[in-house]
Design a protein around this nucleic acid. Structure first.
Lengths: 204, 204, 204, 204
DNA sequence: GATGAATGAGACTTCATTCAT
DNA sequence: AATGAATGAAGTCTCATTCAT
């Protein structure tokens, strides 16, 4: 289970106005990118002036950090919680992939910021986020490793499999939704299927 | 087969200086993003002044377009050429995936710009690039459809499979290289394996 | 009678800082021309940075428009008000010419911008200003026409007379003041005399 | 009669290409103003590159000077020649006004540059041009003074009359042609009439 | 005589940020 | 908590001008 410590909560920005600003920023950052979004862009639709951001976030970058922290924390929680619901490696993998895909589909804008605007963070914040990313990847790596050792999975290159599975899930945020695929649940089922075939079963 | 028409060459910028500027821009756009890269950033390392771009590219955006056009054309050519070298659907898919993965790994910077800086194009240029992207996706879609109809592939959702395979390849440009995976050829082999298992063989 | 509507006030820029910027711009535009005056030129003497214009005027051109609108409105009001004070055509013409000459002499810088920097306006603004110019010319045309029909004036070519009278007044802003002519009132009396002779009395 | 000394000819730029450039510049300067016209604007329509100006004119300003010199010289010659064809003050004035009006109408673009772009000259060139302008004004001043002393003219304020007559003629270049007035000869006749009435005959 | 690449200055404009209100 | 004015830095782009070719 995920319990945010008070530091994190403080950094995300607790007030109602802060939340509105954050939400608007997520949409804009996702659509245009951090560098191409101005504070004016963010505040305009809220009926606020650009300066209204500063009582809530110290800088534009710290707004990105709040979003990043929020997003990465949520994604990690989703994956961790899901994985803990399975008993076998297969079950765990399937739950984790389903959760990760769904998270990227259901929170497409947030996910896009999390996955693609990351580089615009300051060094300090970048490093803090890196930890969360590693922990997320580790969830998948652990499952694949365990399943491979146990013989449940037939994987030649554990690393490559982890990369491939992560890519599959992460990349959802780049294109979702499509005319044909706009149902997060249906997509996650299809992807769980594909991932399972990728790692389970006989060598070719 | 790929035959570059002379128009394309003109739009990409044929002179030597234009090529140097384009190369520098690719690296910068890949590293920081289009919006966060200034013409100064691009020209400084070349010993040029920012204005030196303008004899070669009408605007910063048209420089991005030249890069995008070049990159998309190359990627499409790589995939098309590779697919045409296989006879069975399995062979074609394997060749195409290998080529696409390798292209993203070997031209990582260019690929990143192609896949992630696309949105900064003007409407007109955006539409022109969209055509090339659709043609690239179509190569994979055609192979999967054909293989599925012929029974070579066991795919429940053709669309999802095409998305997943594309994602796998495209996302390479986001993270490549890693300490463990920095050999394009080894990566492409591993990914061809994973993709093959995803689509070939019996239902689970 | 002249009643400024609130829209105009808004477009001209109502705040104190806006008025100072406008005043400085009038002097500069009059002296060097719009194209040769930079925002730095305008703001330097005010102790402001060039960007300080933007809270008040959206673009440099809109600053020119504000000045143009202000100036044309004022000139039209001056002429209209003056003409309405006369009963006979002769009186009306004399009042109107006196007012127009005086306006160009007393507001020489503004008048110069109004008469000579006009062409630098955007198409939309150009058209709006054109309306005011036509209304100003129409005041003179109406008087001359009426006076000619009534026999008060002996004018062969109404159009030419209107052009000549307008030219006389407008051109004041090009040269005023001179060492010998720096008193707006004295000038206007002399010009009223000349204009009166031009149109009144027997054929030559 | 007017005979250009060789210095002037050299400064105007004698070659064929120089003349083409000068002609294009006249049109552009007249339409947009010196400060808003670039060398590219001037050379584009000629199929030349901006640098092609430099074999012929040392700077953009010297191109304006060549035009100004040419124009002022021509205008002065026209007025001087015309005045010399009359015997009485009335005749001289009428000839001079006719010539000056016609010159501004027939050479509208050149005249506009001469009358309104003058201020963009360098100090040295500005002073040289000033001499020509004074000589032109002097032609009118001399006629009016002589005619007033002889009793041919009834003018209260010689200075004002000279200013008014000059204005009438000069301002033609600002608006000519109009839908109704596009015949230089007809205009000059109408204006000669108006000017004559202005100065001839009984006091009012 | 002319070009195309390049420069260096400077233009307008945007923007994150500050601060008095 | 929020605004509007303002700043200073920076961005894209233009332009007169130079120079090798």
């Amino acid at each position: 289970m995920h319990t945010p410590d008070s530091d994190e909560a403080a950094e995300v920005g607790p007030s109602k106005a802060a939340a509105r600003i954050r939400a608007a920023a997520v949409e804009m950052f996702a659509e245009r990118g951090y560098g191409e979004t101005s504070l004016r862009d963010i505040t305009y639709g809220l009926g606020l002036s650009p300066g209204a951001v500063y009582p809530h976030y110290k800088t534009k970058e710290s707004l990105l950090y709040a979003i990043s922290l929020d997003g990465h924390t949520g994604a990690l929680a989703a994956v961790t919680d899901a994985a803990s619901c399975g008993h076998t490696a297969v079950e765990q993998l399937q739950h984790a992939v389903a959760a990760y895909v769904e998270w990227h589909a259901r929170n497409q804008a947030l996910a896009r910021v999390v996955q693609y605007e990351w580089r615009s963070l300051s060094n300090t914040h970048y490093r803090k986020i890196t930890t969360l990313r590693r922990r997320t990847t580790a969830v998948f790596a652990n499952i694949i490793e365990r399943g491979t050792r146990s013989g449940d999975f037939a994987v030649d290159d554990v690393d490559a499999a982890v990369l491939a599975i992560s890519s599959l899930c992460i990349d959802v945020s780049r294109w979702f939704p499509t005319r044909r695929h706009n149902d997060p649940l249906r997509l996650s089922r299809a992807y769980v299927d594909l991932v399972t075939r990728m790692v389970v079963g006989r060598r070719l």
